[in-house]
Amino acid sequence: MNRFTKNLHYFSPTGKAGLIILSLFFLMAVFSARLTTHPHDVSSGKALMPPCFDHVLGTDDIGVDLWSQLVYGARISLLVGFLTAGISGCFGALVGMFAGYTGGWMDRFFMRIIDGMMVLPDLPVMIVLAAFFGPGLAQVILVLSLFSWVFTARIVRSRVLVIKQKEYVIYARISGAGPVYLMRKHLFPEVLPLVWVSMIRLAGKAIVAEAGLSFLGLGDPTSRSWGLIIYHATRFPGIYYTRFWTWWLLYPFLALSGMVLALAFVCRDLETLADPRMNQKISGGV
């Protein structure tokens, strides 16, 4: 925590704003039960009520409180984002370290896979997978992870290749250091900041992708994610000709944009922090 506050002043104003927004969303997700008075999945009032005292953000077409939906939606967004980032970040880091460290045909094999997946248009593939495996949060996370790990793996691998050529690693190897020692002492600490950064970037991507899938109607219908609110809102026949969108659509839209931007700004700052040239200054990475 100390190091965190120490690094805080390396953040730009936008990065700090991003951190604040992000922590607000975290609080929303953690204390969602305390923050809401109405249920988020069943009707609690008249349909399509504009924002009022009882329903702060109004209600949707079947009378569900939008504030509750928004608060619980934060849970889903964060869950999807960080679970995907966690799974694919860990897996990608492992694959990247392994491929970069062992080299040879294993490396070439993984690189082929990674290169192949990089050029694939991810959304159509996700649509197909989601269509066949059915909607559901777990499936969405799995499908997103399936596509995300290559980014981390690619970054980690190229960095490992660079570190492997460094003389201090060669020196350690000549002196009899085993792979475990090298990974623990040299590779892992240097790669870790990169993994963090790429995980945050992946979280942002995953949140956007989940929203996109939900917007296409491929999200978990039992959950109420932001993308799904937007989906339902845009499907509502009269949405373009009434004022309903000023609350029904606007708030999930703002929440989603805010989350994505916050993650992006934080990530941008972390990238400069994790930059090897900057690393000496902050000693110990992110």
Binding site: V208, G212, I230, W245, L249, F253, V260, L261, F265
Partner: peptide, 13 residues
């Protein structure tokens, strides 16, 4: 950073 479909929604409305 903002995904295209959100910008699209914004433009649409």
């Amino acid at each position: 950073e903002i995904p295209a479909f959100l910008i699209g929604l914004f433009f649409l409305f």
